[in-house]
Design a protein around this nucleic acid. Structure first.
Lengths: 248, 248
DNA sequence: TATTTCATTTCGCATTGTGAAATCAAGTTT
DNA sequence: AAACTTGATTTCACAATGCGAAATGAAATA
């Protein structure tokens, strides 16, 4: 189960891809520097990726992520259905609030951003699709923790040590579990600058036909813009998506 | 430019991913067999991918593509903007026609499927996002060929040898280039079962502010359902997207 | 023309990734 | 319940593979 197999080239390749994702038109030098790889090594890995269309070179010789990757990412979004159903509802919620709306799924001790509709405002909160955050620093994550039974929440706390992301991050196991329970009772959760200073979220859960929490829906906005009125709109949107998934 | 660097592990990893994309819940045995890798090799590569969340294991131990990949796909769609703009227009075109609508981009001698809205009909045409097709077997591809100047079309023919996908595929260089020129003059192109028997397409180009063809929009349907009335609707949709990109 | 700066290629070597085979782990069949 | 199956892991010794230093190219700058 907990196996420590690492393949060097794969690790290196992934850090190159990560670096590529950050920079738009990266030079070999930049990429090699950022990944601490010898330029010849980086060159060889990039050339190999290039053959598979994972990497594209612009006319100045700069490196960029290619479309080869998209092929798998589409399949990876196992819950294609959920995204299709959620997207229009998310869009209308965005239009109502003017703020970024995110769809997330739990994966072990993290939430993964599956889909988003970004705010049109100049200053806005924006998550990269596929990026991750630990459960305890997000609104939806806390609701997901509350879904677990028994000592799961405490186990999570022990396992992860509840690393602090900001001064507001809940780092005490007991506080976290009561906050989670409270959020569950309310039917929504807040994130008060617990993941990033200045950012506030509201989250709700989405359930399938079996009542199982399969995803989370959240609004992310600069803290001072966040309005309590959005809670009911968000809950309604979440319920609507759940309903389309067959929840009672 | 034409460099033949191959890194074995990366090639193997990619064929594993390809295999994973085909099967929903693949066993190690299946994957190893399909990729002609020793099971221990496949195991190690998969385990390594697992660490990076590129591969997920279901509760029966089966392997699946994970969400780690999504992270890059979003960035890879260089024209994120185009997709966002096109999606609602594509959806309404789908609703008008009831058929699958695809957004494609050219990449060297191929078109890549960037976004799609699938038909709701029982029998429908469905492309995987990120998959590819050669220019000469698609409607949009022919329009893109016609965009090139000079002997580019003939060069393409020589370079690729115009492999036949069906009995209808145009395999003669001269025929292809005149068909492309005709399509360009008409302002739309057809694909008459040239890529797959039974499938017919109509395609148009999308242009940016500089008048450059940056993408293609197409309707794909079972051949006998395809209606000529759709042409003007498609052209209008394409023009609408182009307009939002700043085309005159 | 000389100089600088990167990208690319070469090459001998050590590390890394490899496959055969052993070990586990779970079912099936006797 | 012991004896087989079947498939997933793990081990291990070895050589192919991927590595980095350094050489070479190619472009831009002085």
């Amino acid at each position: 189960m907990t196996n420590e197999t690492h393949i060097q080239v794969i690790d290196r390749m992934i850090s190159l891809l990560e670096s590529l994702a950050r920079h738009e038109h990266a030079s070999l030098k930049t990429l090699a520097a950022e990944t601490n790889l010898h330029s010849s090594t980086a060159f060889r890995i990039l050339a190999s990726l290039h053959h598979h269309n994972w990497v594209v070179r612009d006319n100045n010789g700069g490196y960029q992520l290619g479309t080869g990757l998209m092929r798998y990412a589409g399949q990876a979004a196992q819950q294609q259905e959920i995204r299709e159903i959620a997207l229009p509802i998310m869009t209308s919620l965005r239009d109502q609030t003017g703020e970024t709306v995110n769809l997330t799924q739990r994966e072990n001790d993290e939430v993964v951003y599956i889909e988003r509709v970004t705010s049109t405002r100049m200053m806005r909160v924006e998550q990269v699709i596929g990026s991750r955050a630990p459960l305890h620093v997000t609104a939806v994550g806390k609701l997901m923790l509350a879904e677990d039974t028994g000592t799961a929440c405490l186990d999570y706390a022990q396992r992860t040590k509840l690393p602090a992301y900001t001064a507001n991050t809940i780092t005490n196991a007991h506080d976290l579990c009561t906050a989670a329970a409270l959020a569950q009772a309310q039917g929504y959760a807040l994130d008060n600058e617990e993941a990033e200073l200045g950012v506030g979220c509201i989250g709700v859960l989405i359930r399938d036909a079996h009542g199982k929490a399969v995803a989370g829906l959240s609004i992310s906005a600069p803290r001072e813009r966040r309005k309590d009125e959005w809670i009911s709109a968000l809950q309604q949107a979440g319920a609507e998506i759940s309903a389309k998934l067959g929840a009672i």
